[in-house]
């Protein structure tokens, strides 16, 4: 079976910093795959290469067998992408936000309204679809972004830290929707997170990244068992990444992004 995503020896260097250092992984169609790791591990850089936002050398990354270096437009048509920040447009309504992406993905006009309404219903925003997004809570904005990503019926849904900055109820709301969508459509979901409990509960397989490399790969159960009988995924995380402040690599940009997100969530 063609992997949903295949990375072979992927490497990305910014100046003297090696952000991604030769990672190999395959995401099986239909699974929820978690890319875990501390700030600066290379998760977002990897996602940006898969989504064509950063250049990748030919043959290094394929999405459903399509080379992201040479088939960028075709790859983008297969993807739904939710970035780390809360990125819905606050000056528009929920419906207008989703309709924008339906148009950008060339959803035929005769199907557009129905498709927009269907995805808004799936994420439980049908009742507030015509309200300004300014009035939405952080969890509602996240669910709206899911709707934006789903309106084109992507084969692979890519979520970059989808629950960062959300309260526990909103986090559950986002994950419940992701689980339902995956169960209903068999869509592949690739998600980055450093919330180990969420990864343990919702991911079929995870890869733990540290300093641009994949340190461990398997089901959450396999990774826990490899550490000890009562180990949690947090223990797996500490085991592979260490847990010292000196190893934290989140730069000013990460801090600014986190503050902006916190600010937008109120």
């Amino acid at each position: 079976m063609t992997p949903a995503v295949r990375c072979s020896g992927v490497r990305q260097v910014f100046g003297e910093t090696v952000a991604v250092n030769g990672i190999d992984l395959e995401v099986v169609p239909g699974e929820v795959f978690g890319l875990l790791g501390p700030n600066g591990a290379g998760k977002t850089t990897t996602i940006r290469m898969i989504t064509t936002l950063l250049p990748a050398p030919p043959g290094a990354i394929e999405v459903l067998g399509l080379d992201v270096a040479t088939r960028r437009t075709a790859v983008r048509r297969m993807l739904g992408y939710v970035p780390q920040q809360l990125s819905a447009d606050g000056t528009l309504t929920g419906r207008e936000n989703v309709a924008l992406f339906a148009r950008l993905f060339d959803v035929p006009q005769k199907l557009r309204s129905a498709q927009v309404a269907a995805v808004l219903d799936v994420v439980d925003l049908a009742d507030v679809a015509d309200r300004s997004v300014k009035t939405y809570s952080g969890g509602m904005v996240r669910r709206l972004e899911l709707a934006q990503a789903l309106v084109s019926a992507p084969r692979v849904l890519i979520l970059d830290e989808p629950t960062v900055g959300l309260d526990p109820v909103a986090r559950d709301g986002v994950w419940d929707r992701i689980d339902e969508i995956r169960a209903a459509t068999g869509m592949t979901v690739l998600v980055t997170t450093h919330a180990m409990q969420e990864a343990d509960e919702h991911c079929d397989r995870v890869a733990l990244m540290h300093r641009g490399r994949i340190e461990a790969l398997g089901t959450p159960g396999e990774l826990r068992s490899a550490i000890g009988p009562d180990a949690t995924l947090d223990d797996v995380f500490r085991h592979h990444t260490g847990n010292t402040l000196t190893q934290e690599k989140g730069g000013m940009r990460d801090v600014r992004a986190a503050r902006r997100t916190a600010g937008r969530l109120g």
């Binding site: 064509t52 936002l53 920040q85 990125s87 950008l104 937008r264």
Partner: peptide
């Protein structure tokens, strides 16, 4: 900064 541009650039545009 808000991630909107990245989202737009991942559309087939």
């Amino acid at each position: 900064d808000a991630g909107v541009l990245a989202k737009l650039l991942v559309t087939p545009t």
